[in-house]
């Protein structure tokens, strides 16, 4: 539990961060809250020679609420939970953040770190699929936006270039009812299965539905088919089961200490059904 030797950098603007990334290439990693990277360094599963701390970049913090919601990458999970405007505009954010780890971790752990790390166990990536978010990446060649649904390629592999920094996430103000449902073994654990659901109701029927799942594949899973199964229905038992069946076609869980594949699939179905029922009740 002792990391390898590394050089610590704490620049105070983004240009300096990018310059350091250019200088050190794949020997450098940026660190935000550190709750994923530092344990990996202690296990020597990651051994960056240069660690670039983003805590000095106050520009990367903050939540802007409008028709589009923009959250700076260095915003902590605790700040997500405590933000009144966000609670009104996108309550699913706080509902999910409250289910991440424990208060100490949430005080340091950031939205950007959770998203950029590419760990399929993290909750924000799945939630971002559900919200159809865009990620802002800044690199030597300027700024670009990538759709959350195009960002994840495999476990810990994303479309972010080595010299790019994820600076913000943005998404349209979500409409309708919402739910983030998560089963975990204990506080601090990754999900056995988690589901993010947004449902818009019109005239007693589902007019739009978005469904995403966490920790049930090597990437977060956006299940367009599950959403489609709900649309046009009155969100009754049959529709919920159709959505569950569709979702099961999109996930690919692996056996681990949480249980075998068969169990995970069953729980994924139960958790999604609960999330849909709760989201519908709020729609």
């Amino acid at each position: 539990m002792i990391p390898s030797t590394f050089e610590y950098h704490r620049p105070d603007d983004l240009a300096a961060v990018i310059a350091l990334l250019q200088e050190h290439g794949d020997e450098a990693r940026v660190v935000a809250g550190g709750h994923s990277l530092i344990p990996m360094m202690k296990l020597r599963m990651a051994d960056p020679a240069h660690l670039i701390d983003l805590q000095g970049l106050s520009d990367l913090k903050g939540i802007e609420i409008g028709d589009v919601i923009r959250i700076g990458a260095m915003t902590t999970q605790a700040e997500i939970i405590d933000h009144d405007g966000l609670a009104e505009a996108a309550p699913i954010m706080a509902e999910a953040a409250r289910q991440i780890a424990d208060p100490q971790v949430r005080n340091l752990g950031t939205v950007g770190g959770n998203i950029a790390n590419g760990d399929p166990g993290n909750d924000m990536p799945g939630l971002m699929q559900c919200l159809d978010a865009r990620f802002t990446l800044v690199g030597p060649d300027g700024t670009r936006e990538v759709a959350a649904r195009d960002f994840y390629e495999a476990a810990y592999v994303t479309t972010r270039e080595e010299e790019e920094v994820l600076t913000a996430v943005s998404f349209d103000r979500p409409r309708g009812g919402y739910a983030y449902e998560k089963q975990k073994r204990k506080i601090g654990d990754y999900a056995t299965a988690a589901a993010a659901v947004q449902i818009v109701a019109e005239g007693g029927r589902v007019s739009a539905a978005s469904v995403a799942m966490t920790n049930l594949s090597d990437v977060p899973v956006f299940s367009a088919a599950a959403g489609a199964a709900l649309e046009g229905t009155a969100c009754g038992e049959e529709a919920v089961q159709a959505a569950v069946a569709a979702m099961l076609g999109d996930i690919d869980p692996m056996e681990d200490n949480r249980g075998p594949v068969e169990f995970k699939k069953h729980v994924a179905g139960v958790i999604l059904a609960r999330a849909i029922v709760r989201a519908w009740s709020r729609a």
């Binding site: 089963q183 073994r185 056995t192 949480r258 249980g259 075998p260 169990f263 729980v267």
Partner: peptide, 16 residues
């Protein structure tokens, strides 16, 4: 008696 073992007990008893 963690989640999956309890779940397995229920399944083996036909409760699903």
């Amino acid at each position: 008696h963690d989640h999956w073992r309890i779940w397995k007990t229920a399944r083996d008893l036909g409760l699903h």
